[in-house]
C-alpha cells in the first residue's frame, strides 16, 4: 500500500497552488545575518524552498535529531530534483556567533545557513513562529540547555510558510512532504 501511495505521489503535480491555507497562524518576515555576515531575510536569495528550524548549534537535545534530519531531508529532496536550503535561526546568540555558526552547521550539511542577529531582530523571528526559549537547566559539561520549538517549517522561496514537519518523521517521509509542496524544480 505504501508503494502504491509513493507511485501516486510521484505522478502527482505539486500541490503548492492547491494547498489549503495553513490552519496555524505562524510565519512572517524577519531580517537577520547569516554566518558570512550577509543580511538575509525570510526570502531565499537563490530562489529555493527552505527548511527552517529554531535551535542552537551546541544543542545536544532535540537539535541533535532535527539538524541531521534536515540534512537528510535536503539530500533526499535533491534526489527528487528539489533543491531545499536548510536554515537554522539560533536561539542562543551568545554562543552561536558568526564565527561559530558556519563550522558547526557545516558538520551537518554544507548548504546549511545559520542566522543570528540582535535581540530585537531575533525576537521578530521568534514572534513570527511563536518560539519561546527558556533555559531549563545548566549542563556543567556543555553549558545551558534551552527549551525551544522543535518543529521544522517548510517555507517557499519567498519565505511564506507552506507547512510544518515534526522532527520525529523519517527522512523519507519528511522529504515526501517537502516534495509534495515544492515539486521538482526545472
Amino acid at each position: 500500500m505504501i508503494r502504491t501511495a509513493i507511485a501516486l505521489l510521484a505522478l502527482g503535480t505539486p500541490v503548492l497552488a492547491d494547498a489549503p491555507p495553513l490552519p496555524f497562524d505562524l510565519g512572517g518576515a524577519y531580517t537577520l545575518t547569516d554566518q558570512s555576515g550577509a543580511t538575509r531575510t525570510q526570502a531565499d536569495p537563490d530562489g529555493h524552498p527552505q527548511l527552517l528550524f529554531f535551535g542552537y548549534a551546541n544543542c545536544r537535545e532535540v537539535c541533535s535529531a532535527a539538524l541531521p534530519l534536515m540534512a537528510q531531508v535536503v539530500d533526499a529532496a535533491a534526489v527528487e530534483g528539489v533543491e531545499v536550503t536548510p536554515v537554522m535561526i539560533t536561539v542562543d546568540p551568545a554562543r552561536d556567533t558568526l564565527a561559530t555558526l558556519g563550522p558547526a552547521l557545516a558538520q551537518h550539511h554544507e548548504d546549511f545557513v545559520g542566522l543570528t542577529g540582535t535581540e530585537a531582530q531575533l525576537q521578530v523571528a521568534y514572534d513570527a513562529y511563536e518560539i519561546e526559549t527558556e533555559e531549563v537547566f545548566f549542563d556543567p559539561e556543555y553549558g545551558p540547555v534551552y527549551a525551544h520549538g522543535s518543529f521544522l517549517y517548510l517555507l517557499d522561496a519567498q519565505g511564506e510558510l507552506l507547512t510544518l514537519l515534526p522532527p520525529v518523521l523519517s527522512p523519507d517521509a519528511a522529504a515526501q512532504i517537502v516534495a509534495k509542496y515544492t515539486g521538482p524544480q526545472s
Binding site: 500500500m1 505504501i2 501511495a5 509513493i6 505521489l9 502527482g12 500541490v15 492547491d18 494547498a19 489549503p20 535529531a65 534530519l69 507547512t163 515534526p166 520525529v168 518523521l169 523519517s170 527522512p171 523519507d172 517521509a173 515526501q176 512532504i177 509534495k180 509542496y181
Partner: peptide, 15 residues
C-alpha cells in the same frame, strides 16, 4: 527515525 506509521499517514493523503 523510522516512523513507519507516520510515513504511511503522510503519504496517504494530500494536505
Amino acid at each position: 527515525v523510522q516512523a513507519a506509521t507516520l510515513l504511511a499517514a503522510a503519504l496517504a493523503a494530500p494536505a
